[in-house]
Design a protein around this nucleic acid. Structure first.
Length: 553
DNA sequence: GCAATAAGCGCG
DNA sequence: AAAGCGCGCTTATTGC
């Protein structure tokens, strides 16, 4: 029995009684944690406790995050009738600790987060246990999500190794030298001037969308917005510099010098991952745009001296997940031991890899137009089970019903406004516009639920993958005393980045091959965990290099 | 003068 | 050529 500081004791695998108590971090650091394999720490919020433990050099092997679990179970169709889901909202419905160490200011309007006391913790454990008693897959989801929370905290703790000098080089190459103050970087200033000249608008601010649109139209260009796709292909000398300006402007504002100073002060980028932050169960992020790092600056992600980055990408994850979900053996076969899209070409489903990809995305997203829709009938014929699966989800959504992922995360119900629009369309007085609005909205929700089951189950696969990788990496480093406080990861390979279907591991150079093998095996293990004996492959593309960009391409 | 919103674009 | 899903972030503009 081990207790979390201010949290609850773990109900051991053997079903011991849970107990609550306090363990000062120093005691934990002396070896309470991580040495007893069977221990699962149970606490209200990983983001609240784990950063402090990590700071004290303590690595936690397993946990149950009651807040994450609570939210999942409250929303899951399978546990809708449980005591947990039907009682009024309590402390576990509060938002997580966004900034665990933040000092609450006197002027905070929001009420301070309500902390569950010991009785509440025990009651919550009991209620959750009761809710999932007959739902082993939900139980798996809870521990997978909790493992994800541990990984997220650890990645923030160690940070993504970032070379400020390389980042500055990339910026200087594209934007010119860093300007002083608020001035536009040289290259942007030149392009702005070109745009003004070509449009005959000497005072135009290219950052003002309405002004740019007005000047484009004044020059006879038939555009309705200033978006890239409307501009591409227009025959006018202002278009090229304008597009170039927008590109640089994006880089400068989103990942320029200001970003670098703010988010990478010390050679490590430490984003906050928001586990389960997306409705589908994907992770979100907060601060620094961690999940939108443009490819052009990934050169700056560089391993320490003597270390490398192992970059792993789950190939065609979502189609493979759909094959597993729907038990579509022909689809699984197309992806066995090869690129799934190429497999579709080989099987004669489509004529080219591009068509395969386009059509598959249309199937997953509910595309109804263009080339994507044109390919759909062929996919429908080749993989009827897969298509039926997403179609069923879409129809359920159109009826306003809930759909669920493989492990049991459920989609939200459409909001009050959705119902209102539907009701309005049924009114005797309803006009054609009200009806078409309702129809469009119906289809939109169907596209959402269609994608939900696939994206959500893919997120579950990824959680299992990351949990398994995390476990194996730790085991890899077990020789010697490398894992002792004060810095558990200083001499071990460790996760540093996660992007939906992609992992980056910072590893000692000599372990690169071993790490790669473990990551690959972990993907296979995740597949078995979700889909059992159903023969669907989850191949991983792997590369190691000093820089993220080099490993990717 | 400040907060909310929209447009646009980066990622999967 | 984007479209069809899910996000976060910045800037300018709109609304109060």
């Amino acid at each position: 029995m081990v207790v979390a500081p201010g949290g609850a004791a773990a109900p051991g695998e053997g079903g011991d009684q849970a107990r609550v108590g306090e363990v000062p971090p120093e005691a934990a650091a002396r070896g309470v944690v991580g040495t007893e394999k069977a221990v699962r720490w149970v606490w209200d919020d990983t983001g609240r406790w784990y950063p402090r433990l990590l700071a004290d050099g303590v690595r936690v092997e397993r946990c149950l995050d009651l807040r994450l679990a609570h939210r999942l179970l409250r929303g899951a169709a399978a546990t809708a009738g449980s005591r947990l889901a039907t009682t009024p909202s309590g402390p576990f419905d509060a938002a997580g600790a966004a900034e665990p160490d933040r000092v609450e200011s006197l002027f905070d309007v929001a009420t301070p987060q309500e902390r569950p006391d010991e009785d509440a913790l025990l009651a919550e454990i009991g209620a959750q246990d009761e809710a999932v008693a007959d739902h082993p897959r939900l139980r798996l989801l809870l521990v997978a999500e909790s493992a994800g929370a541990l990984a997220a905290a650890e990645m923030r703790h160690t940070g993504l190794p970032w070379d400020r000098r390389v980042h500055d080089e990339v910026l200087a190459e594209q934007l010119g030298p860093r300007p002083t103050g608020d001035a536009r970087p040289p290259r942007m200033a030149e392009l702005a001037e070109q745009v003004r000249t070509e449009l005959g608008a000497p005072r135009l601010n290219p950052d003002s969308l309405p002004d740019v649109l007005r000047e484009l139209r004044r020059n006879g260009l038939p555009v309705t917005s200033t978006s890239k796709w409307e501009l591409i292909g227009l025959d006018h000398p202002a278009v090229a510099p304008l597009l170039a300006y927008k590109k640089l402007s994006r880089l400068h504002s989103a990942n320029g010098w200001a970003w670098l100073d703010r988010w990478v002060p010390d050679g490590r980028f430490r984003p906050e991952y928001v586990v389960g932050g997306v409705v589908t169960g994907r992770w979100g992020s907060s601060g620094g745009g961690a999940l939108q790092l443009p490819k052009s600056i990934r050169r700056a992600v560089r391993a320490d001296e003597g270390w490398c980055l192992v970059v792993a990408d789950a190939a065609q994850l979502e189609p493979r997940v759909l094959a597993g979900l729907s038990h579509d053996e022909r689809m699984a076969e197309a992806g066995r031991g090869r690129d799934l899209y190429q497999g579709m070409v080989d099987a004669g489903v489509v004529g080219s890899r591009d068509h395969a990809k386009l059509g598959m995305l249309g199937a997953l997203y509910g595309g109804t137009t263009g080339q994507s829709a044109a390919v759909l009938p062929r996919i429908n014929r080749a993989f009827p089970l897969a298509m039926a699966h997403v179609e069923t989800a879409a129809r359920a959504g159109e009826r306003g019903e809930v759909v669920s992922t493989l492990l049991g995360r459920s989609s939200p119900l459409p909001g009050a406004q959705w119902n209102q629009v539907q009701a309005d369309a049924l009114d005797d007085e309803a006009g054609a516009s009200a009806q078409s609005r309702a129809r469009a909205q119906t289809r939109a929700w169907g596209r959402f639920t269609r994608n939900f089951v696939v994206q959500g189950t893919a997120a579950e696969w990824a959680l299992c993958w990351i949990a398994e990788v995390r476990r194996r990496l730790w085991a890899l480093g077990e020789q010697g005393d490398a894992g002792r406080a004060p810095e558990p990861f200083a001499r071990r390979p460790h996760l540093v980045y996660f992007l939906h279907d992609e992992l980056v591991i910072h590893a000692p150079q000599e372990l690169a091959d071993e790490v790669s093998a473990q990551v690959r095996d972990a993907a296979a293990a995740a597949g078995r965990l979700l889909f059992g004996d159903f023969p669907v492959d989850f191949p991983v593309s792997l590369a190691s290099a000093r820089s993220y960009a080099d490993a990717k391409d």
